[in-house]
Amino acid sequence: MIDGVGVYDIVAVATIVFFVGVFGFLTRKNLISLLISIELMLNAVVVNFVAFNKYLYPGRLDGYIFSLFVIAVAAAEVALAIALIIALYRLDNSIEADDMDSLQG
């Protein structure tokens, strides 16, 4: 518990960071920038887990352990995403998200 800080304050900060991530996702064109935005969102969510665990369910560990899992999965995801970005870069010599539209109908 942080003195003088309630759960709402922490969750509000996390919300702001999350929406900044969303904004980045919507406005950036570069695949790596998109990845960065996603990481922001993911981190904000982890903060929520931790804060809820700490403030609302202090007798339990589930939020804690979930945040550990999220971190692990995020690490895996980033590794995979970067591998994909490199492969795409080799293919197209570009990592602009808008160039990746071969699935267009």
Partner: peptide, 17 residues
């Protein structure tokens, strides 16, 4: 409405959002 399916991920994300 064919242009809606642009294949652009960001656009989809925006609509989703």
């Amino acid at each position: 409405i064919a242009d809606l399916q642009s294949g652009r991920v960001r656009q989809y994300a925006f609509v989703f959002m």
